[in-house]
């Protein structure tokens, strides 16, 4: 193979690997926040059922907790977008 072809091929492989990385990053990155936020919301449901008069407070706490657990998901999204668009 002449060096020019090798260079183009290497570029293609690198781009493909970047896509693969983006997918795996977002895929596995979505696992943790999904389960965590679900657990939070489940417990919030229980809490609302026990003391419905505190529903507003519980919902607010739930949303704050979920927003924090969400952040790792957003990091994955950012990395995946970077891998897709900047490589």
């Amino acid at each position: 193979m002449d060096p020019n072809t090798t260079q183009i091929l290497a570029k293609g492989i690198a781009q493909g690997a970047a896509f693969l990385g983006a997918g795996i990053c977002m895929g596995i990155g979505a696992l943790g926040p999904g389960v965590g936020e679900g657990y939070t919301a489940g417990k919030a449901c229980e809490g609302v059922a026990r003391s419905p008069e505190q529903a507003g407070l519980i919902t607010r706490t739930m949303l704050i907790g979920q927003a924090v657990s969400e952040s790792t998901g957003i990091y994955s999204l950012v990395i995946a977008l970077l891998l897709i668009f900047t490589t």
């Binding site: 781009q15 493909g16 896509f19 997918g23 895929g27 979505a30 999904g34 389960v35 919301a41 489940g42």
Partner: peptide, 24 residues
């Protein structure tokens, strides 16, 4: 790579939310 990853990302990515929402 892009096409097979598109399949894998939605495959693994829905696992967490799926179990989580089920718990809720």
């Amino acid at each position: 790579c892009a096409y097979i990853t598109a399949g894998i990302v939605i495959g693994i990515g829905t696992f967490g939310p799926g179990t989580g929402i089920g718990y809720v």
